[in-house]
Design a protein around this nucleic acid. Sequence first.
DNA 1: CTCCAGGGGA
DNA 2: TCCCCTGGAG
Length: 368
Amino acid sequence: MTDLRAPTLAEALLGWFDRTRRDLPWRRDRTPYRVWLAEIMLQQTQVQTAIPYFERFLARFPTLADLAAADEQAVLKLWEGLGYYSRARNLLHAAKQVVRDFGGQLPCEFKALRALPGIGEYTAGAILSLACGAKTAAVDGNVVRVISRWSGSAWSAKSAQDRRQAADYVLAQMPDSRPGDFNEALMDLGATVCLPQNPRCAACPLAWGCQALRTNLTGALPLRDKSPAVPTEHRLLLLVAAAGLWHVRQRPSDGLLAGLFTFDWLSPNRDPKRFRIYLQGRDDILVRTLPSLTHRFSHLAWHIDALRLELPRADLDELACWLDANEPQPEGRWVDRQDLDQLPFPAAVDRYRRQELDEPFNPSPVSL
DNA sequence: CTCCAGGGGA
DNA sequence: TCCCCTGGAG
């Protein structure tokens, strides 16, 4: 007998998922540790970016217990370039807690997961549904977009209240049999079909019932707030070398780029022009002007001018009054080329590291 | 270039 | 509410 009733959201979505499911590394073996690691990496990060990081991380720390025994710098090194470095630090701290409190096994229990650093509402839901098989919503930005368009609801991914509404909607539609697949299907649809811009509605398995498509509102849903203009800070980066060593500093353990290493910065309360004049008078310091660049963060931008300095000795005493020192190591460190490769650098500064480290030094006049 | 996306902590 | 980072699209 032919089934004449309309399909449900879950049937259409899971049918599509079964045909098009992406083969991603963390889907091959859905253990709580692998799901957890993947979900942390995927926060604010695109799938293609996260894949090589996930592989390297698991190769280095195959189990949660291996991770818990790591030191922070090794974890940050594996996170280098991925951004939002507090995710890596929280991951390590949470792993230690799980070893201490749960014998190294992530608990399949919402309150316990939610209490771990770095695990919020979304990540707890993702671990529970994907790794534990629990019927739990996992509402990220993708899911808010899909459900907001499907239901024609004027929701914003930033609003906690709207995310709750979306979670309630998801839970009401979720089949008892495949909660993890249902959540993953929603995320896949948001990532590959129900795109923020130019959604591919012609290829969408939910087009038949989509309120936003029916009312021509896919461009308006979900609601988004316009991004505010970010202030630009002008900074002078100094790649200081002497006798084959490079001078680096570790940033403070909180705030921007916490715990990562950079080269030196001219102190913000020093005038860059005066510093360039000073350098012209120092015949013993070789200088080269490097290309400038602008690096944007979420809330501010750095316009970076950069100089490479070759000192006669590995000694910063005479230069120290120009430089930006910070706790806990105001004096910084001199490291060789091999050591430098072991230190985590943020993307903004890593571009200079990659470009300059193995370049021969060609001094140039200091431009003012 | 500019615009935009994307969870959690304090 | 603000802070945290990078990459991809156009």
